[in-house]
Amino acid sequence: MLTVEGLDVWFGYPPDRVDAVQDASFTVAQGESFGLVGESGSGKSTILRAIAGLIDTWSGRIVVDDQQVEGRRRDRAFHKTVQMVFQDPYASLHPRHSVDRVLSETLKLQGMDDIDRRVQRLLDDVGLGRGFRFRYPHQLSGGQRQRVAIARALAAEPRLLLLDEPTSALDVSVQAEILNLMTDLRAEHGLTYVMVSHDLAVVGHMCDRLAVMQGGRIVEVMKVEDLRQGAASEAYTKSLIEASAGYVRA
């Protein structure tokens, strides 16, 4: 479904050039859920943005659904295959667009018909009722906004969803709801997930395999079962697992 090979991403020009990602390679199989874990600045979100075509300063090979992509250019078929959910539900919805406008514009862009019915379906899919259709973002809670963002991503009926810390801005109880929703949607629509998170427990819950990143490089790709048993081979991964387990008084 997705192959990334020798991906380098950089920002700026020498001498101020920052190499955000260096030589990252991984593959994600159809129907799999793959996690990218690391601390802030490790380049995990940058990889997602490069795949989605939101960054054009990258080199390497990105193959989505047997189609190699270039730079920032993405064709219509790509947008129908790949969609993204962003970290901050407060920043990812246009403050002046109602839920109805967000979803129907998306559907129109994707060339769908029967928009009225589809908007209703999407809202039902993400567990928002009829009453939410004409609300503006400021009338929604964080969790409800993230549901709208997920509905927007689903509108294109994609097969690959890029999830950029989709629950890190939410309360734990809301996080549980959103994670459950994404589990259900994946089963229902046969989706493939690439999920970025700094939270090992969330990735452990959602993913089958994960890559651990540090300073722009992938240090280790492992199975979630190994993560659960603490069977990491790299020292960095071990320290990350230990730190995530919680605070131990010095």
Binding site: R49, R74, H79, M84, F86, Q87, D88, A91, S92, L109
Partner: peptide, 21 residues
Amino acid sequence: ADFIAAARLQGAGPLRLLIGH
């Protein structure tokens, strides 16, 4: 902003982003 990125990902062209967003 993320909402512009999201609209781009839906395939929205520059004119639509400019006028509508």
